[in-house]
Amino acid sequence: MGLRVENLRVYYRTLRGYVRALEGATFSVADGEIMGLAGESGCGKTTLGHSLIYLKPPMTYIEGRVFLDGREVPIWDMKRMNEFRFRRISIIPQYAMNALNPTRKIGRMIAELLAAHNVDFNEILPELKRRLDLVQLSHDVLNMYPIELSGGMRQRVVMVISTLLNPSLLIADEITSALDVSTQKAVCEMIVEFRNRGFVRSTIFITHDISILYQIADTIAVMYAGQMAEKAPTEVILRSPRHPYTRMLIASLPRVGARYRQERLHGIPGAPPRLLDPPPGCRFRDRCPVAFERCQETPPFVEVEPGHFIACWREI
């Protein structure tokens, strides 16, 4: 069944009006799918990820519906969301290394968290230990304070905790950003392993590093200025992207073996629009080399081939 998001609109409330950070996102993530969510800073990746679990003020729900395993998720209702949080929708935050209470031993912290969800700690302890083995942590960490662990160990602990109750949806929010390359690899392999073993069903992997997504994601969704630009299987996005933004984004990646002494690395000219009062229509219009009159209207996010969605008037 997986996750289905329909026309989700989440704004930030400010004194000068709404910042339109997420504008009509429609997509689905199948069971067992790892969807990479890519895009530059401020494009709404994290807003999308967080809105599915906790609408932290000033985030404001405007419209849209979210279904998980065929059941509607009341993301606008802080109280009712509590039964989904952790148990069915879980997050590994960007700051996973600092996400443990410094005054609690890890085992006690887990026990308290489980108690809040009416799960018996001792019942789940054998499984917890198996999972600690899986991420190569000693069982002793349960009896330690977070400061006794290294940053990487703490992140692994958080990953184990977040997936402990086998959530249907796991949101991994830029978890590799602060890591060195070898740790990045280990973390990515862990995410795949969690999926393969059925600890989590669907995963949304938020990152701005497309080369990581190539290693682990089944599909990639590219966002631009709060809108979904393109979603397709990983191979398709990387080999034959069709949205002009995706094409320029992929083209700007450094290539292995290329020499940039003669030829400079290309970026995308211009900057994303301000989301406080964005121009109507396609938000990539001003930077797009192939824009035409029709781009004054907002393009729909349509399926041009099975599993390949594009929001661009040129391509539909």
Binding site: H50, R85, S90, A99, N101, R104, H117
Partner: peptide, 22 residues
């Protein structure tokens, strides 16, 4: 505003518990 309080909230813990244990 600390990260672990944020995660506790995203894990569905009640306000009272967050105040008392976090």
């Amino acid at each position: 505003a600390r990260e672990f309080v944020d995660l506790a909230r995203m894990s569905g813990r009640s306000s009272l518990k967050i105040m008392l244990t976090e």
